[in-house]
Simulated assay, not measured.
Amino acid sequence: MVKSLREWVTEDVDPVRDRSVVWLSEHHFFRDPMRSVYVDPAYFFAPADGIIIYQAVVEPDAPVVEIKGSSYTLRDAVRDDSYDEVSLVIGIFMTFYDVHVNRVPYSGRLTYRELDAIDSVNRPMLHVEHELLKRLRVPATGGEYLRHNQRMVNRIDADELCRPYYILQIADYDVNCITPFGLAQHRPVQQGWRFSQIRMGSQVDLIIPLGGRHDLRPLCELGQHVQAGLDPLVRIVGK
């Protein structure tokens, strides 16, 4: 269920906030709760549990966010200078308290590319997590990890929409480990299926190119907390 940031911290984080890091690591972080699988081709569902920290329609060379005075674009995100699609981008930040199993937002065929960190190690996401959990606000700074860190670019060709879309998984400083549950490329995946896990803190972006027969209508707002496979993020208008 979609919750405000304050509601989620009060109801889901505060009850376990005082537990030790060892307990959180062993009993909380790696949980993989049973969930009902929702299938509705009129929606993209959330690919990850977490907090929406940006949401916008952007040109491929326009800034998704500004990082220390320089633009972080879609081409930077997918590390492909040939990317030329105007796209809806929704960034979901996964805190240490979130379930880190990712799910398929819309059915199709999955292909992925793993890209190493630009530097020797990943940049930390701790500032963003602190601002969200302590100050209860979406931070305007601290996004250096977006450009530099290890990532998995998952492309899903959605035959029903006659278009591909992308799930971008970005790893945190602590453990650069993105683990697909299936290694085969071009494999069929269904809406709501578990397809991967990112360990420790991380971020998942849903990138949907515009155009074609359908319009896209975002359903959530900045600062809201969503759950993978349960909460619709985008309505496909015209279906």
Rank of each mutant, 00 (worst) to 15 (best):
D76I: 09
I208K: 02
M152G: 06
E160S: 12
I67T: 10
E7M: 12
Q150Y: 02
M1V: 14
R35N: 13
S107I: 01
D76Y: 08
L233C: 11
V78Q: 07
R213Q: 12
F44A: 08
R17N: 06
I167H: 01
W23C: 00
E66W: 03
R147E: 12
V101K: 05
L24E: 01
V237T: 11
D40I: 03
V89H: 02
P105T: 14
P63Q: 02
M200P: 00
A46C: 03
F30Q: 03
P41R: 09
E26R: 13
C220W: 00
F93I: 04
G238D: 08
E59S: 15
I67S: 08
S70D: 09
Q203S: 10
L168G: 06
T73I: 04
E114C: 07
H28E: 03
G192I: 12
W8L: 14
R75V: 11
Y83T: 07
D215R: 14
T141W: 03
Q185K: 11
S107R: 05
V204C: 09
R6M: 04
C177F: 04
T95L: 10
G211W: 03
R113W: 04
R137G: 01
R31W: 00
P124R: 07
D98A: 12
H186P: 00
L183Y: 14
V39N: 12
